[in-house]
């Protein structure tokens, strides 16, 4: 199975009635058990692309499809602003997708508790989202996406609203969880270190129009990438990506 993004173009009409090309001819695929990270300066259309892949936005032209799959693919999305239902408890949020798929109460309970345990929220299963900290909300969001056991996991800057320390911890935790589930994942971020830390492949986007600048394989073991042993290679990747983005990011700043 793989997910193919083929000739995707997205055009918008802006406030001045001008046509703006947000995404120009995007082509890549996500393999089974592959962690792909989209990285780029703000305004490069990376969130737009993720929304198209997630079926929340239609492309102007081009296709997104799952290759080699029998049933309708299941998607799990982790949103930047977590998008937990405020009227549901943590547990009820986590099992939402299962509920909509018609899973039995017993199944919901088993799977729900399993993923709550995995993200470390077992003690907060009956709390409402309002009672949780930012990091805990995002864990709940991750558990909700994992609970449907998706064919593709989509994550839209899930940690960008967190403070730096929580963020580091969450990245480590995400990696641990990912190593247990090994889901095909498309992850959007503007943080280069985060991209190198998590990805099998980093897709660097440029802006105006948003298009693929380069695809970089991260040839490092999946764990302990920032350890003494790999730190040099890690930094080399980061610098390489930064060099690709730098010019665009500077221009973005001037707008």
């Amino acid at each position: 199975m793989k997910i193919v993004i083929e000739n995707v173009i997205k055009k918008f009409i802006d406030a001045k009635k001008n046509e703006v090309t947000a995404l120009n001819d995007i082509n890549f695929s996500i393999n089974e058990e592959e962690f792909v990270v989209l990285v780029g300066p703000s305004g490069c259309g990376k969130s737009t692309l993720l929304n198209i892949v997630g079926g929340l936005l239609s492309p102007t032209s081009g296709d997104v499809y799952f290759d080699g799959i029998e049933q309708d693919p299941t998607l799990g999305i982790v949103f930047q602003e977590n998008a937990l239902f405020p009227w549901r408890t943590v547990f009820q949020n986590v099992v939402y997708g299962l509920e909509e798929r018609g899973a039995s109460k017993k199944e919901q309970k088993e799977i729900g508790n399993h993923y709550l345990d995995m993200v470390g929220l077992a003690d907060f299963r009956d709390a409402y989202p309002k009672q949780l900290s930012g990091g805990m909300k995002q864990r709940a969001g991750i558990a909700r996406a994992l609970a449907v056991e998706p064919d593709l996991l989509l994550m839209d800057e899930p940690f960008s609203a967190l403070d730096a320390q929580t963020r580091t911890l969450m990245q480590e935790e995400l990696l641990t969880i990912w190593n247990r589930t090994r889901l095909s994942t498309l992850y959007v971020t503007h943080n280069i270190q985060e991209a190198v830390y998590l990805a099998d492949r980093v897709i660097v986007l440029s802006r105006h129009p948003g298009q693929i600048k380069q695809i970089i394989h991260i040839d490092l073991p999946k764990t302990k990438r920032n350890s003494e042993e790999h730190i040099q290679q890690f930094n080399r990747y980061s610098e390489e990506i930064w060099e690709l983005i730098r010019h665009d990011a500077q221009k973005a700043l001037k707008e």
């Binding site: 929340l56 999305i77 949103f79 998008a83 239902f85 939402y96 909509e100 798929r101």
Partner: peptide, 25 residues
């Protein structure tokens, strides 16, 4: 919040369930 509607649809909600489980609460 339209984001909540998007989240519900992502996790497989039909239109009726979007109204019942997201819009109403």
């Amino acid at each position: 919040d339209p984001l909540l509607v998007k989240a519900a649809v992502t996790f497989g909600s039909s239109r009726f369930n979007v109204i019942r489980k997201v819009i109403l609460p």
